[in-house]
Design a protein around this nucleic acid. Structure first.
Ligand SMILES: [Mn+2]
Ligand SMILES: [Mn+2]
Ligand SMILES: [Zn+2]
Ligand SMILES: [Zn+2]
Lengths: 153, 153
DNA sequence: TGCCAAAGAGAAACGATTTCTTTTTATACC
DNA sequence: GGTATAAAAAGAAATCGTTTCTCTTTGGCA
């Protein structure tokens, strides 16, 4: 994703969400978009500080939360239970992820085939499903190939 | 689950995991087994203190973690990112859950139909899947029927 | 240009979870 | 039954990721 596409797209995104287009907010989004994997709020903050002498960690937390609430970025469920975010370049469309627990790469799982399971649950339990979590964890082919390059976080 | 079944089963469980059968550990398991829904470590602790004047919160955390590692209890993924545990009476067999975010009831999802998705990911990405998360969140039929009885946690 | 709600800085608080040290206890073995 | 020993627990304290607070700054709009 080149810088121009990024900037144009980001302006539209923030407008749609009714969020002001501030340099800090754009930086948060840019930092995430430049990564191939998911990042923690503190990692986003460290990367953003390279561009801004001053940017507060609470600012990063707030923006990440807002952007995730708006569906612009995805939250990653992690065994450590820390917060992690990922900017998914696959446009709209509901889908899930395969994350490498070693290097943090993320792969799309295009089809969400849980519809049948949901219908089954609804009819069987009589409840209403408001959301679901489907995520596959493992090692990507890079980390599988080079065991000595694995990042055991 | 009656008390006798509980005690006999629990002894075997701890033996299998190579854990000493202590009163505190059994209490943690009993508290969870008596609930129809999932509990936080502090809630387990409060319930366990009814039986023991002294039981430390770290003890509860440690036991819950060990029992979960042994597969005896399940961890629940929660939007609040707090820890929650659930004692699943469905014996062995891999399956997933539908949890009510209001009253914390848990329903089994007997079939795990993600095998096809996994195979697809493996062949397409060349990675290895070590685990997956599949969970459905929503409102159970009780909470759906009585909106005014909903527990908005 | 001026207004004002939204956004950010910086410091501080928070609180769930973990760590540490000392004491107790379950279990294996005699 | 008595004893050794490693596991387990108590209680206090620390940790640290995350959130809150107060004041200041700024983007969007007329
Ligand atoms: Mn994606
Ligand atoms: Mn179950
Ligand atoms: Zn990897
Ligand atoms: Zn319910």
């Amino acid at each position: 994703m080149n810088q121009d596409t990024m900037n144009r797209g980001f302006s539209a995104i923030m407008k749609e969400l009714g969020l002001k287009e501030t340099p800090k907010r754009r930086a948060v989004l840019e930092v995430l978009a430049e990564q191939h994997g998911f990042l923690s709020p503190e990692e986003v903050w460290r990367a953003a500080r390279v561009r801004f002498k001053t940017i507060g960690l609470p600012t990063v937390y707030r923006n990440l939360e807002e952007l995730a609430a708006g569906g612009v970025i995805s939250t990653i469920i992690h065994p450590s239970r820390q917060l992690y975010y990922y900017f998914c370049t696959t446009g709209s469309g509901h889908h899930h992820h395969f994350i490498c627990t070693s290097c943090r790469r993320v792969e799309d799982i295009p089809e969400c085939t849980v519809a049948a399971m949901e219908q089954d649950i609804i009819t069987r339990t009589g409840g209403r499903i408001t959301s679901h979590i489907v995520q596959f964890n493992g090692l990507c082919r890079h980390c599988l190939t080079d065991p000595n390059k694995r990042i055991t976080t």
